[in-house]
Write a protein that binds this DNA or RNA. Structure first.
Lengths: 129, 129, 129, 129
DNA sequence: GTGGTCTAGACCACT
DNA sequence: GTGGTCTAGACCACG
């Protein structure tokens, strides 16, 4: 279980973790009851501060996504969360892209073409991460 | 000339302005020599701090995109613009969407479908704003 | 606007702040749109770390109780939160007291008597804080 | 002899056990010489770590409340118990409830009414557990 | 001025 | 071993 952490990205580290955990759960890679890597482990692996990881986990716990088991660690909550739709998690990003398409007056065909280019590039760069 | 300002969005207000001006120029909606709305007008209309608008304009001026005419206001610089490729301005947004597609393990077909949904919605909501 | 902070209490400082803000809102002492004291002000006044206050405010923001206005400060959200019932906020504390009453096999009359004693003492100690 | 263990409650498990033993003795449900359930039995029944139960028993032994009989188990100490006043054990819970009453500006009548509601509910839910 | 983020390190509590 | 809390201090971003 690896997180993709980009320390220099504009979005804060703790938020990168929060979002990735949400996606890992939505994609089925993490299932209710699964353990999460320990705060210290994640911190060591990515050379970041444990508090940063802890902050991410705490937020997810407050959200009901994770459950804290004292002295043991964090696990994916096995409760009744709305089983986030994968596609719903994708929409916000594409909506903001849509705003740009409209403001630039780009044709829908061109927009889809650029999107496909991005999709192709990604599979090149990260064949099986 | 209206800006779309969402004060509660994650991207800061001044940056929303900067990016929209760039897009308006790239799309041809703003052409060299055109006037921009005054700092005061924008600030009033969107109930934001004039300094925020001013900061955005100053950044664009430093970039050479806008020209300040003392006592008159800002206008689009008439140096031939960097000929920003419209599609290039769209790529970053679609790249970040691509990351999400990959992490959620969504098929490319589904991704394009969601994108199309967003494009359709936008034209419904904002036919001519 | 003063918080009652007891740094040596078993409940963490940030949580004391969270709960007091909730109660101040429920009691009507804080109303939608009201400003909260700045992180730095609270930190200075009680000689605690700004991050501790910030953590409390952030949690309340995530909960939708507070709204962050960038560069300005925090205010009480003016949204539609369920307008927490004052009595509902009191119940958990009295429920845990009830557990003790039952386990000690104390009569209801005695329980109410002890409760009244506590209520009387409090008004002595803090006549008008 | 059952303990009420709520692993997800804010008060740690070992402390829940310590306090319940104290109350059972104060209420007369446990009398000097009585056996306590074995560490293993409690741990199994509530699916908690045996070390947690052991820690609770050890604390009570150090306090002189329990006596360890090697190879047999723990029993209630027969030194005359500190004659803990039952009502004194109840006060802390009601004092913290009082703080909330005052901060929410709830009338004493309402406070007693809510308390009575809790007392009624408890007798409904757990008539003889 | 406002809050946000991160670090380094200490100490505590729980299992 | 686990996570939680707090501190002190630095730096950033926003208005």
């Amino acid at each position: 279980m690896n997180f993709d952490i980009l320390p220099r990205a504009p979005t804060p580290i703790y938020r990168q973790i929060v979002e990735q955990v949400r996606r890992l759960i939505a994609s089925g890679a993490l299932r209710p009851g699964d353990d999460l890597p320990s705060v210290r482990a994640v911190a060591l692996q990515h050379a970041i501060n444990p508090m940063t990881v802890s902050k991410a986990y705490s937020l997810l716990e407050a959200e009901g996504v994770l459950t804290r088991r004292r002295g043991v660690g964090m696990m994916v909550a096995d409760t009744d969360p709305p089983v986030q739709d994968k596609l719903a998690l994708l929409r916000p990003a594409l909506l903001s892209a849509t705003q740009i398409v409209r403001q630039l007056n780009i044709s829908e065909a061109d927009a889809h073409a650029v999107f496909q280019t991005c999709l192709n590039e990604w599979s090149k760069n990260e064949p099986d991460d």
